[in-house]
């Protein structure tokens, strides 16, 4: 469902990704971890068709990037640490705008259900600029799920969420995973990411340094491995 081969990305002369070989099977949930500057967000932006690789092959949802970027975007959802919302529109208007961009027919019921799901139904007619950071992130979750994407990319999606919001997002990702959707999540919370995902991958200095399934290691052993790689 997600596959990169020898994926390389340079910014000028600075290599950010150095031959990344990543494979995420359909229905798999992978947590991607690593120190700042490891190339996690760059990798995610390439997978989301927001940046082009310097070298290598990328396939998402069975389609080649960047050649089939339009169709990839249709099947892809992104929930990032930035909410990608408009402060001068209401919560409902933001979702309606994205529903129109995704050309979703009869989207009103879906909008209402999602706003209910993220706990913003009562604030649906309020301007997003009046929302707290956590409320904006809840709305970002609804935006990311609006078109029921096959592949969900999450870039530090817990940013700004309170414990209830974090629990909601945990529930959402578990539910998506149980439905056979493919998820790739960047997180700095090693213990939480390892506990939630089927498999955890550590990216360091632009390369995959370690990968382990949840049933292969204890959380403590994974945390030690992470510390050894990042610290070293």
């Amino acid at each position: 469902m997600i596959e990169t081969r020898a994926l390389t990305k340079h910014f000028g002369r600075q290599p950010v990704l150095r031959g990344v070989e990543l494979s995420v099977a359909p229905g798999e949930f992978v947590a991607l971890m690593g120190p700042n500057g490891a190339g996690k967000t760059t990798l995610l932006r390439i997978l989301a068709s927001l940046a082009r690789p310097s070298f290598g092959a990328v396939r998402v949802a069975g389609l080649n990037l960047p050649a089939e970027a339009g169709e990839v975007r249709r099947r892809l959802g992104v929930i990032a640490h930035l909410p990608l919302l408009y402060g001068d529109l209401t919560a409902e208007e933001n979702l309606r705008f994205y529903a129109r961009l995704y050309d979703l027919p009869n989207s009103e019921a879906r909008l209402a259900a999602l706003l209910e799901r993220v706990g913003l139904a009562a604030r649906r007619r309020d301007l997003v600029r009046t929302f707290s950071r956590g409320m904006q992130q809840r709305l970002a979750i609804a935006r990311g799920l609006l078109h029921d994407p096959e592949v969900l990319l999450l870039d530090e999606p817990y940013t700004g969420l309170d414990p209830l919001g974090c629990a909601l997002l945990d529930e959402v990702v578990r539910e998506r995973s149980a439905q056979g959707r493919t998820l790739l999540m960047i997180t700095h919370d090693v213990a939480h990411g390892f506990a939630l995902a089927h498999r955890s991958v550590i990216l360091a200095r632009g390369q995959i340094a370690f990968t382990a399934r949840r049933d292969e290691l204890t959380p403590d052993a994974f945390a030690r491995q992470y510390a050894a790689i990042v610290g070293g």
Binding site: G70, R73, L82, L84, Y86, L101
Partner: peptide, 14 residues
């Protein structure tokens, strides 16, 4: 600046 450009670019439209 508001980070919404990525939201536009992620949309499956020409």
């Amino acid at each position: 600046d508001r980070g919404s450009l990525d939201g536009l670019l992620l949309a499956p439209v020409d």
